[in-house]
Amino acid sequence: MSRRWDFLTFYGLGFVVFLYAPVLLLPLFSFNDSIFAIFPLKGFTLSAYQQLADDTKLQGAVWNSIVVGICVALISTTFGLLAAMAVTRYRLPGKGPVVGTIMLPLVIPSIILGVALLVLVRQVFDIELSLWCVGAGHVLLCVPFSMLVLISRLEGFDKNLEEAAQDLGENGWMTFWRVTFPLALPGVISSLLMSFTTSFDEYVLAFFLSGIDQTLPIYLWSMLRFPQRLPITLALGSSILIASTIIVVISEVLRRRGVQSEKPTGL
């Protein structure tokens, strides 16, 4: 079909504006010299960013979120890769219900997952709430995502490559490290980055499961409640947006490169 400037093309461009404009207001107003996010804009200022840089409690929260995010990314990608290999390489009886159950966290409201984990942690095992619990909750959310990403990657390349390696005398473990893993690597990196951003941005589970140590979204939430802290909230929000956008772009480029067919499972 030829490229035409018709209604649909304008709709496409308008849609992108609709999708991005609300979020782009955050950086716009973060440089505005006013405690309200209102038009007309006043002077340009970096004072909110200056305040951010001086906030030690915030730095603690950022650090917590990074540590939890990295652990969650590594753990959920490992479990996701194992499951994705099992699903794509073997004929498993009863695969549907098993995979369906693993995918459940994608459709159960996180508030229900949150209270369920809270009941288990506090009232069944009587463990103190901590960042470990937050991490466990985030692993629960991220394993289905990792698995989906890795399944579509593993389905995308030729299985004969693995069989060839085995015929040439490699054992299972070496086949994995020298053939499967390098081929799956873009998917693995994409899964790591996606799990990291999911964990880094997640609020509801963290709200239920964190103890004294805050993660960044919890800190951000506490700031959202105070209108007088709006400028610094906007500056923090803009910084988070920029950081996660960079991570997401890298992960998306890696994920889509080399996957020939677009599958619905790839989201």
Binding site: P22, Y203, P217, L241
Partner: peptide, 16 residues
């Protein structure tokens, strides 16, 4: 990619 990016950025901030 353009339409997927917001999907992965902070839900909290998009609502805010």
């Amino acid at each position: 990619i353009i339409i997927t990016i917001p999907f992965w950025t902070s839900y909290l901030l998009r609502v805010f």
